[in-house]
Design a protein around this nucleic acid. Sequence first.
DNA 1: AATTATACTTACCTGCAAGTAAGTAGGAAA
DNA 2: TTTCCTACTTACTTGCAGGTAAGTATAATT
Lengths: 193, 193
Amino acid sequence: MSTTAGNTRDQIIDKAFQLMLQRGLNGFSYRDISEPLGVKNAAVHYHFPNKMDLIKALIDENHHTLRRSTSEFMAYGGPARPQLEGLFAFTMNQCQCGRPICMVGALSIDYDELNDDIKSANDHFMKDSVDWLTKVMEVGREQQEFSFDGEPMSKAVSILAMIQGARQLARVHGLDYLEKIFEQIRTDLGIKD
Amino acid sequence: MSTTAGNTRDQIIDKAFQLMLQRGLNGFSYRDISEPLGVKNAAVHYHFPNKMDLIKALIDENHHTLRRSTSEFMAYGGPARPQLEGLFAFTMNQCQCGRPICMVGALSIDYDELNDDIKSANDHFMKDSVDWLTKVMEVGREQQEFSFDGEPMSKAVSILAMIQGARQLARVHGLDYLEKIFEQIRTDLGIKD
DNA sequence: AATTATACTTACCTGCAAGTAAGTAGGAAA
DNA sequence: TTTCCTACTTACTTGCAGGTAAGTATAATT
C-alpha cells in the first residue's frame, strides 16, 4: 500500500513527538497517534511494540536534531552569540508550533516510570546539551561577547534550567514571559543591543 | 467512625499532594490515594466528586502555604537575602522529601486538560509568587544585598523559571545540580560568602 | 510459480481509571 | 424515638489504555 517505505513510521514519530511535547508521556495514547494518520492502533504497535520503544525513538530523534544543529560549533568554535540566539529562536519557535514543553521536561514528570534505557538516553542528551552550552559560554567569555561570574558550566546549566522553566511559565502566562526571560538572560550576560 | 471530623479529607489532600508533586496530574489515580489510607475509592469521590475538585483543593492549599510564608515580608519588608535563601531551602527540602516537581510544573504539563477555574487559581498563585519575589528583588537591590541589571520583575521571573527548571534537571541528574544552580543565582546577584 | 518479508488490519484481551447509585453505621437534632 | 445528616462502603458502569495473536495484501526474492 505505502509506496515510500518507512513513511508511516516517520509519520508516527512526527505525531508522537508533537503529542509528547504538548501533553507529556501520559497525556497521549496510541490511538491519539494512529487516528489522525488514518491507520489502526496496532500499526503503531507494529513499529513500536511498546510505548517505551516509541519514547526511545523520540529521544534519539531529538538527540540527532541537537547534534545536527551544534556539531559545527562544537568542531570549529565560532561566535557564541548566534549560538545562544539560535537556542532562543528554536525555543520560541517550538512554543509557537504548539510544543510548549521540551523533551527533558516531559520526561522528568514521569521519570519514575521510565526504564533504564530511556533514563540513560535522556541523560546523554542532557549531557550533550550542557556540553554545548558550556562551550558557548566559554567561547563567549573568551571573545568578550558575554560577561559573567562563576564557572561556564554552572552558567550553562542555570541558563538551560531557566529556559526549561520559562517554557512552563510561558504556557500559563503566554509567550511574552519567554521573551522577557530571554531578555533577562542577555542582560545577565552583559549583552546590550 | 472517625472521631475527628475532616480527618480523612485532610489525609486525602496530604496524599494527593505528595502524589501530584511526584508523578504529575495524570500519574496517579483515586486508588493510589485511597489504598494507602485504608479507605475505598468512592470515599475520595465523596470528598472530591471529580479530579478537578481535588486539584483545586491542592492549589488552594499550596497557595495558602505561600501566603503564610510570605505575608510578613509582603507587609513589613525586611532583609531580602533570607527570603531568597528560604526559597532555596524550601525547594531543596521538597526535592529531598520526594516531591521533585512543583505544583505549577505539574500542572503545566497537562495544561490543556485543566478547566478555567483551575487555570485561574494557578494563575493567581503564580502572580503572587512573582509579586513576592519581585519585592524581594526590589528590596534587595535597594538595600545593596543584591546587585543586578534589568527590572526587578524580570529578574524575579527569570529566577522562578530557573528554579522550576532546576527541579527538572535535578530529578535527572541529582540534587547536586540544584545546589549548583542556587550558587549561580547567588553569583549572578553579586552575592559572595 | 512458490516463498518470504514487510506493513499493515481485524478482532480480540486485560486492567485500570473515573465516576455513580444505592445502601449503611453512627451520632446529633427535633 | 424517629428523623436526618455525615461519612463512608458495596457494587456496579463506561470507556479507554496498552498490548497481542492471527490473518491479509503487496512486493521482492528464489
